[in-house]
Amino acid sequence: MAIEMSVSPATARRRRHLGSGLLVAGVLLCGLYFVPRSPALQALAQWAPALAAGFGQNILISLLAIALGTLAGLLVGALAISPLWLLRLPARLWVQVFRNAPWLVLIYFTTYVFPFEIPVGGLYVPFPDWVKVTLGLALPASANVAEIFRGAIASIPATQWEAARSLAFDRGQIFRSIILPQCFKRMLPPWMNLYAVITMGTALASLVGVHDVIDTAQIASNTVNQTGFTVLVYFSLLVLFFAYCYPISRVTQRLERRYAFY
């Protein structure tokens, strides 16, 4: 006679956490065992601070790019739904151009279209390459945010507009008090997914001379000059980007379930 045993969700969760803890402990123990014996791992340990600093540069570029892109995208998205075609047409053109332009082309464009120095009051202030890359990534980010914003507004049922007008709300009051609070909830999951994509796109920064994590890995690979180390250092970059972007993906999925609209 078979006996079925049910496991509560809390118990299953504790078992998963225990298994994850044991896996992490095993990886750490293996690292403590193999690092003193592997020249490639020893070299990676020496270059780890430089790689972490380079990855910090990538994160800074991604944060500034998504911030600038969000501000510009909300403005462009608002213009794209304007009843005036003189405002609507340029906004839609902006979205179509920068959503469909290759990111690498935009990065090269902003790198060479902006000067290396800006004259300010008789002084020449340097215009760093990483700022140009940030602007290059902010352009497609703004176009995507504008489209996310437009789609969120379009997803609001027309009956809410009609009900608000019947209560004597004007267009501005309807937009601020009723439509926008719902739009921001609907925009949050795709916006976070866009940020993860922007973060991965920062790997292109090294192609225009930015000293980021990819450039640091190339310097480390050329300095150590070992095939095993080269494979290991680029695998470490995969782990870095995965460790940073995967939690964002998981939070995005939870928000999609939480703010699901049927």
Rank of each mutant, 00 (worst) to 15 (best):
V7Q: 08
S8D: 10
P9D: 11
P9E: 09
T11V: 07
T11Y: 08
R14V: 01
R15W: 13
S20V: 15
S20K: 14
L22D: 03
L23N: 10
F34N: 09
F34G: 01
F34D: 08
V35A: 10
A40M: 04
L41W: 14
A43L: 08
A45I: 09
L51A: 06
G54W: 02
F55E: 01
I59T: 13
I61N: 04
S62G: 13
S62K: 08
L63M: 14
L63F: 15
A67Y: 01
A72G: 14
G73A: 11
G73Y: 08
L75Y: 09
V76S: 08
A78W: 11
A80N: 09
I81S: 11
W85A: 15
P90I: 09
R92M: 09
W94R: 06
V105C: 14
F109E: 05
T110Y: 12
P119S: 12
G122H: 14
P128W: 06
V131C: 01
V131R: 02
V133S: 03
T134K: 04
P140W: 05
I148H: 13
F149C: 05
G151V: 01
A152V: 05
S155E: 00
A158L: 08
E162I: 02
A163M: 06
S166W: 01
R171S: 13
G172P: 03
Q173R: 15
S177K: 12
I178K: 03
Q182T: 05
F184S: 05
F184K: 06
K185P: 02
M187D: 05
P190F: 08
M192H: 11
N193D: 13
L194P: 06
G201A: 14
A203E: 00
L204C: 08
L204Y: 14
L204F: 15
A205P: 07
A205W: 10
A205M: 10
S206R: 03
S206I: 01
D212I: 06
V213T: 00
I214E: 03
I214T: 10
T216G: 02
A217I: 07
A217T: 08
A217F: 09
Q218H: 10
Q218V: 05
T223R: 15
N225Y: 12
N225R: 08
F229G: 05
T230M: 15
V231I: 11
Y234C: 12
V239S: 04
A243F: 15
C245T: 14
S249L: 14
V251S: 03
L255I: 00
R258E: 00
R258Y: 02
Y262A: 07
